[in-house]
Design a protein around this nucleic acid. Structure first.
Length: 467
RNA sequence: GCUCCCUUCGUCUAGUGGCCUAGGACAUUGCCCUCUCAAGGCAAGUACACGAGUUCGAAUCUCGUAGGGAGCACCA
């Protein structure tokens, strides 16, 4: 794009509202922001947007931070560690906002509005029915000081609205979309301070980004048409505009914005299922972003390969088969000790080495654990036919051979080969199915050694009878 | 309704007028390896939403159409 994306340090931020767990879409924009800051040697700020007291919860804030730490997205300034622009929680920034509200009001850039939400709703409804965009009609903007005083005397609490100038043109260059142009007459006067005195999103989000020195704002496409409002606020206040970049939304298989009905949507859910943070990061790294490498990257190498000029405009589909690939890569790269800890079931080192290539998620180890330590589940259809094809005589011979070979698969197959004349898959497959209950799996020899001889013999024996 | 955004293989993407009979990765299929699966090696199929225009030449530029999405909240 036409924006200069040089290597001077950029300051980015992630500004979640603590009203739920860390959504994948947010995790991705946070990640990109983080990468950009790290790439340029700048700073990454975490700001909590908790002006909505009703929905904001401290536990969500903790959860958000915990998920970010899990992903390795460490911040340089934030509510827990402070920084030059503290506080980093909007609920604590009232004083800063009040000063700006006063400034805006004094210069006529904002005015109190006494309209009730019922009145506003009705007005919007009427406008919609009349085929017009639902915009604030400007009722209170034209009130005389006497009218205002009268309402104030009645004890009514006003909101504060930004006075949008008529016929202004707001232009900016979006970091990912390029040049944008909006006209102010399409925008109604919007609320910047709620009745309860707290700052509203359009306002506090913009002034905080600017006030905290953020140079690059990366956020979802859904904010693109909100940007001119924020720019007007900043311009009116004489505050520096950050560069805004809007990345395509994350969508589900059906193309609709990623939501609960698509399955797991929060970092926390993937964490709970046993996905590796590095796997999730590798996946996110390629969603709506074209890197110069398409192979596995350790998290530490990602900033160097992040290319902000290659951020995507089109919505990106979140596809779990793609994530599964990265997960495999991640598992492949773990040490035995790491896998053991990840499986969380104090398995022996031998067991872990044996099954690690057959495990994508921790739950995948359970069947193999049962093969070694527990009991076999009922056979599936394919497995049954393998057993039937081999016949009871085969297993009778196998059980007998086992008495000589014990858990030495080489010996066992050697003896069986001599006695039955079978070889290759005809020989191994029935043994595999009888011993493990499955047609696929890790190497049979070591697996056999890990189970007790009694168990192994019983499993062979159990198919020696005609059924 | 108005404003804005988006559209290349199944998926993520490369591509900014000739290097494109459109490249890569994941997935899929086949073959090799192999007791099986995985891994690895080799190979195959599959895409420029549509229609006009500009041009010697268009995935790339212009216009239109269709489809999808967002915003227009005292939610962020």
């Amino acid at each position: 794009m036409s924006v200069t994306l040089d290597s001077s340090p950029v300051i980015t931020r992630f500004a979640p509202s603590p009203t739920g767990s860390l959504h994948l879409g947010n995790a991705r924009t946070a990640f990109f922001s983080y990468l950009w800051a790290r790439k340029s040697g700048g700073r990454f700020i975490l700001r909590i947007e908790d002006t909505d007291a009703e929905r904001s919860q401290l536990r969500f804030r903790e959860e958000l931070m915990s998920e970010m730490r899990w992903l390795g997205l460490d911040w340089d300034e934030g509510p827990d560690i402070g920084g030059p622009s503290a506080p980093y929680s909007q609920a604590e920034r009232g004083e800063f906002y009040r000063g700006l509200f006063a400034q805006l009001e004094a210069m006529g850039g904002a005015y109190p509005c006494y309209c009730t939400s019922e009145e506003l709703e009705l007005s919007r409804k009427l406008q919609r029915m009349g085929g017009k965009p639902p915009r604030y009609a400007g009722t209170c903007r034209h009130m005389t000081s006497a009218q205002l005083a009268e309402r104030e005397a009645r004890g009514l609490k006003p909101t504060l609205r930004f006075a949008v100038s008529s016929d202004a043109v707001i232009q900016f260059t979006d970091t990912v979309h390029g040049p944008q142009r909006f006209v102010s007459s399409d925008i109604g006067d919007f609320i910047i301070r709620r009745e309860d005195g707290t700052a509203a999103f359009f306002f506090c989000n913009a002034v905080d980004d600017s006030g905290m020195g953020v140079t690059q704002v990366l956020r979802g496409d859904d904010h693109l048409t909100n940007t001119p409002r924020q720019l007007m606020v900043l311009d009116a206040l004489g505050m520096r505009r950050p560069d805004y970049g809007h990345v395509g939304l994350l969508v589900g298989e059906d193309g609709a914005p990623l939501s609960k009905r698509h399955g797991s949507t929060s970092a926390q859910e993937f964490r709970a299922r046993g996905f590796l943070p590095a796997a999730l990061l590798n996946h996110l790294f390629h969603l709506g972003h074209a890197s110069d490498v398409d192979s596995w990257l350790p998290a530490a190498d990602m900033p160097a390969h992040f290319r902000p000029e290659h951020l995507g405009r089109a919505p990106a589909r979140f596809d779990e088969t793609q994530l599964a690939h990265w997960q495999k890569e991640g598992v492949e790269r773990m040490s035995g000790a790491q896998i053991t800890a990840w499986l969380g079931s104090d398995d022996s080192a031998e067991f872990v080495e044996l099954v690690r290539h057959n495990v994508v998620l921790p739950a995948d180890a359970a069947p193999w654990r049962a093969v070694v330590r527990g009991d076999l589940p009922p056979l599936g259809k394919d497995e049954q036919s393998v057993i039937a094809a081999a016949g009871p005589e085969f297993f009778a011979a196998a059980a007998a051979a086992f008495d000589q070979s014990s858990s030495d698969l080489k010996q066992l197959t050697k003896i069986l080969k001599e006695r039955t004349g079978r070889k290759g898959a005809d020989l191994f497959m029935p043994l595999r199915v009888a011993l493990t209950g499955q047609a696929h799996g890790p190497e049979l020899g070591p697996l056999l050694k890990l189970m007790s001889p009694e168990k192994a013999r019983a499993r062979l024996e159990s198919h020696a009878q005609n059924t």
